[in-house]
Amino acid sequence: MILAFECDAENVAMCAPDDVSVLFEFHPIFESIPWLTRTHFLIVLAALLAIGLMYFGLRKRRLVPGKFQLVAESAFNFVDQGIAKDVIGKGGERYTPYLLSIFLFILFGNMFEVTPLVNFPVTSRMAIPAFLAIVTWFIFVIAGIAKQGLGYFGHLLWPPGVPVGLKPLVGIIEFISTIFVRPFSLAVRLFANLVAGHVMLSLLLGTAGIFVWGFIQGDLGFGKALTGGAWFILGVGIFVFEILVAFLQAYIFTLLSAVYIQTSVHPEH
């Protein structure tokens, strides 16, 4: 069983399910616990990997770092220097724990997409991106209120430095964009990228497997095997691309969280 759905391999160029959610929803591991699926296991595993990297990287910490420590340190410096201090500026190091958490959690969640035998990014389930986007929303709104008081919303609705005639219009756009579009786009961006990647990879590689296997079994003709080979080559190309996407989306989510926090903490920029 390569794909979870029936495929009319004789008549189609590529197997596709009628409903895309069969690629994302799994049967329960135990029949008695209907909600516990593979996804839960992978979410916890992503968290454990993030914790494990830091734990094993810092367990025997030395001034001259070992391999694990070097990886943990570069992840830390990447977020601390490259994102927190660089983007937020003064006081940015206060947000390093949160930014490092979301970066590592999303990174490991994404990397499951291109991990052989796992091949399922937990960030392609809306639960993770939505939750993290809402947490980021709370952080930047609370940071804005802490910095500017309730004038934070006032500045959004009545933006300074804009001609008076345009103020209501710009204010409404700004308010909607900050309060609603930001968390929405943050969550959907991550979700959509990983969903698209997962669909492409599973359909291309799954179809390739079915066609080539059918040819070997003698059920399908040579043309189908060739088509399967083409899908496989394309799938491998996309696989490599998805490794980049997995990293880039984790980076962009973290970077945009930092940028949003920065606009709240230093509104003058």
Binding site: H40, I43, F131
Partner: peptide, 29 residues
């Protein structure tokens, strides 16, 4: 349905992320 977070996964995600955040906040950083 596909776009909405599934409650069970949401709870697991919140719990897992909170643990990660606590470790980063209190230990790693």
């Amino acid at each position: 349905q596909f776009l909405l977070p599934e409650p069970a996964e949401l709870y697991t995600g919140i719990l897992a992320f909170l643990i990660v955040f606590l470790v980063m906040w209190k230990f790693a950083v």
